[in-house]
Design a protein around this nucleic acid. Sequence first.
DNA 1: CGCCAGGTTGATTTCGCTCAAGCAATGTGG
DNA 2: CCACATTGCTTGAGCGAAATCAACCTGGCG
Lengths: 237, 237
Amino acid sequence: MVNRRQPVSNCINSQFRNAAEWCALSDVDLKAVEAVAICREYDVGDVIFNENDPCRGVYFVTSGLVGIRKAGLEGDSTLLKIAYPNETLGYRPLLAGQCHRATAEILKPGLICFINSATVLPMIEHNPALGLNFLQRATRELGDAEERFHKTVTLTLRARFAHLLMLLKDRCGHSSDNGKFILELPVSRGDLAAMLGVRRESVSRVIHELEQEGVTHFTDRHVEVANADHLIDEFRA
Amino acid sequence: MVNRRQPVSNCINSQFRNAAEWCALSDVDLKAVEAVAICREYDVGDVIFNENDPCRGVYFVTSGLVGIRKAGLEGDSTLLKIAYPNETLGYRPLLAGQCHRATAEILKPGLICFINSATVLPMIEHNPALGLNFLQRATRELGDAEERFHKTVTLTLRARFAHLLMLLKDRCGHSSDNGKFILELPVSRGDLAAMLGVRRESVSRVIHELEQEGVTHFTDRHVEVANADHLIDEFRA
DNA sequence: CGCCAGGTTGATTTCGCTCAAGCAATGTGG
DNA sequence: CCACATTGCTTGAGCGAAATCAACCTGGCG
């Protein structure tokens, strides 16, 4: 295992080769990336990049969990996204030619690899398959972002919370056959609130409601849902 | 002038050649697009495509104005975007490999040209410059979408309305030197509300406030703002 | 003329926020 | 080992912004 906070090289491995976007890389390019990648272990709370920082390249999440946040005027921040292992971070500002418009903060310790733009950009420019992979990624995220806006202004907090649980289920849960599922929340209550754009207290109250109605069973970050349909009904009915 | 509702060909002209994304096309490809483009005049209220329709290609807005909407459960719809002349519509679902996730409806009559995916997709796949143009477009829109979500949950309606006016100013306004600007709203009050994710009545009340304070002067869709800074202060202070 | 779409205004309600207190788990220093 | 912050979460009381419900106004149009 590598030491904390020490740069490490040669960590771009088969994980990277199998990553959604980078699978289009040739062996030569893979080696080139490997040569320049700068990898580091991060601790909870560490910041990878800040809002308004110039974008100097992309970050590949080898392990751990990263939260993408935007800060508001009075300490109220939103959590735009959770980045899981095998995801590439910071490609958006790089390709848009903009500064970072959000902050990336470690939610769960892990190894993150930096690849500078001087290496990445030419590859995307000359490898259409790689470009298309990012194009698909960007357009899907755009669709999701528009959907989130729509749901935010259209649905009640309760419905959005139910929806969020279903989204998290796909990532962090495992479901039984009969509609039941179990979920390990990747984030705190406060961050659940930040994902929904509401206050911690409001999330507490919604959870309290769902508990009382027997729809969910929360124990710290462990959640059991007897029947997923009860949650789905909240936002599709 | 072409007849209403009649397909027209050969309308892909210098406008298309100069469009943000398509300027990367070779003369050969331009001719190919010209050959297959199906152009049509649309009237206000006409629908170009519907939510959940399969995506069969892209639409180029030659003239007029198009609103991109998402419908809610009980008739409450949001207006995600206004497409102006020279913009390409429907590229998102095409490149994401998804169905349309919103409805495109004509806000101002104009000529819209359809280009099927069988023509467009190979061009994007084989012309890296074209792909990069769409990549830049998608990533910028993604940044904007995330910003909108953040502003929606962070700012008051009043602040968001001020922000919206500033955005519309860039598109539909012309400003004098001393901070004053004049703006012709491209949409109804109801659609302003749909852009902000609130009810018509709430927009009415905000306008009433701003009028009384002398910040703005609304006459139907004509807006005069004596000092843009007063609006900017609403969301940056 | 009646009708309707788009907009404004008023009265009331409601959902989520604010402020505040309290609690359990964890950590820290004397 | 205990006193005491600190952090994350819950709960309660009251408030406020926007929704809802409803009336009414205006201009356009068959």
